[in-house]
Design a protein around this nucleic acid. Structure first.
Length: 424
RNA sequence: GCGGGCGUCGCCAAGUGGUUAAGGCAGCGGCUUGUGGCGCCGCUAUUCGGGGGUUCGAAUCCCCUCGCUCGCCCCA
């Protein structure tokens, strides 16, 4: 056994699997471009500082899941654990004030150092969408509907949309004080993790999965009760609009989300068929992040979809391979050159051509063709090639009768005619 | 970081202390140098994730270690 292996939590995506990925991506790209959302690409490697400041020091992602190392210049670098911080950095750096309204998407690998399990890897892929500069409720609704529609368009049903509001920073500050006091009083009834979070990141205690803690929390003060009039109104407008669009949602007041930058709307889309890692999409509004990172005050909202989980959910109808149209068998000096010329010519007809490159015997190549089962085959041998001709034969799997024709390489009219009657 | 399950060829596997480690799929070669699907024949693990130990003898027993996998935490 070779001891060179991929790193834990990383996977090789092999050609057969990538067919599904590519088909799914194609549908996603179409949806995005129809919504006038433009692509942005940022480096996967950034200064560590970016994520500490952007995501928040107390978060799980930053405190224990980052791939961080020193480069040769002793700079602390980190493989991006998520996309928003980088996008925001890029926008500020490239002059956001000259273009304050932007709808953007990105897709690519993200890295988090965790124990791998079903639906979780150390290198995984996300599609992210960010609406920059928009603060209206309908930008929330629009972006949620885009996430929802992508999933639906892929044929994924039985999804749950969970929503919550985190209010504005003021609401949260007021709540936090009261909540921390309450947590301190009830500290002994909480699980250990939650106890540790009291000082680090008290809001995260809210979505503890610990049964005991959950029960204790039933009597805790609610963030909702500390919301300003304005925040509450915003949330109810959001719900109202979702209802009018017939996008079903569930209110989940414990939905806090792991990253510090969220304000107001937070949402997740989950699926029951993903096992314990149920979230396929997570997002929310981050009205203060851009300013906090040194840009002008700019409201924004975004989400990210986990591609691996999406692929898990998407049906196998997306995994259908395109069939080879023509397989070109060739042997002999003249034949091999003519075969290459032919494959170049035929690819211009938007056909899927495979040229045999093994140089094996004719019967070998036929056996190979038979395995691939192309719609037809072309045979070029030296006998034909010296006359600048080739044999094209319909590859009928059912009957033993073959429709065969000898065509001259330069006879484009005849080639077109043959292709038209057999392919189009 | 903490639990449970599992590691025999590229894949699926038999073997649970005793001569050369079954079999199937895939792959390669041949029967058949210029013409396909079937069939037949042959080849493909000095070694059972790795290391150490017990034993006359280990894939099989013991110890350690690595990896995979599922779950906890948290997220995509």
């Amino acid at each position: 056994m070779n001891n060179l292996k991929n790193l834990r939590g990383t996977v090789d995506l092999l050609p057969d699997q990538l067919i599904k990925w590519q088909n799914v991506e194609k549908i996603i790209f179409e949806q995005l471009s129809r919504a006038s959302i433009k692509e942005i690409r940022t480096p996967i490697l950034e200064m560590t500082e970016l994520f500490i400041r952007g995501i928040g020091e107390g978060t799980d992602v930053v405190s224990k899941e980052m791939y961080t190392f020193l480069d040769r210049g002793e700079r602390s670098c980190t493989l991006r654990p998520e996309g928003t911080a980088s996008v925001v950095r890029a926008l500020i750096q490239n002059g956001i004030s000259s273009n304050p309204f932007q709808k953007l998407w990105y897709m690519g690998p993200m890295f988090r150092y965790e124990r791998p399990q079903a639906g979780r890897q150390r290198q995984f892929h996300q599609l992210g969408v960010e609406f920059i500069g928009y603060e209206s409720v309908r930008s929330d609704v629009e972006i949620i509907s885009i996430a929802w529609d992508i999933l639906r368009k892929l044929g994924i049903n039985e999804l749950n949309l969970e929503i919550n509001t985190l209010g504005d920073p003021n609401d949260r500050l007021n709540f936090k004080k009261t909540f921390v006091d309450w947590l301190e009083i009830n500290k002994n009834s909480l699980d250990l993790d939650s106890q540790n979070r009291i000082n680090k990141n008290p809001l995260r205690v809210l979505d503890s999965k610990n049964a005991q803690t959950k029960k204790v929390l039933e009597n805790a003060p609610r963030l909702f009760d500390f919301m300003s009039e304005k925040s509450l109104e915003r949330f109810s407008t959001l719900k109202q609009q979702l209802e009018m669009l017939e996008i079903p949602y569930i209110e989940n007041f414990n939905l806090v989300r792991g990253l510090d930058y969220y304000t107001h709307t937070a949402f997740e889309i989950t699926s029951g068929s993903l096992g314990s890692q149920a979230t396929v999409c997570g997002g929310g509004r981050y009205d203060n992040l851009i300013k906090q990172m040194g840009g002008p005050e700019t409201p924004a909202i975004g989400f990210a979809i986990g591609l691996e989980r999406l692929i898990l959910l998407a049906g196998n109808e997306h995994a259908i391979t395109k069939k080879t149209d023509i397989f070109i068998i060739n042997k002999g000096l003249h034949a091999e050159v003519l075969a290459i010329k032919l494959s170049r010519k035929l690819r211009n007809y938007n056909l899927l051509i495979e040229l045999d490159l093994t140089g094996g015997s004719f019967s070998k190549q036929f056996k190979k063709a038979n395995k691939i089962k192309p719609r037809s085959i072309i045979v070029v041998g030296d006998d034909e090639a010296v006359r600048n001709e080739f044999v094209i034969r319909l590859f009928d799997n059912d009957t033993s009768e073959n429709k065969e024709e000898i065509i001259s390489f330069d006879d484009d009219i005849k080639i077109k005619k043959w292709l038209r009657s057999n392919f189009f």
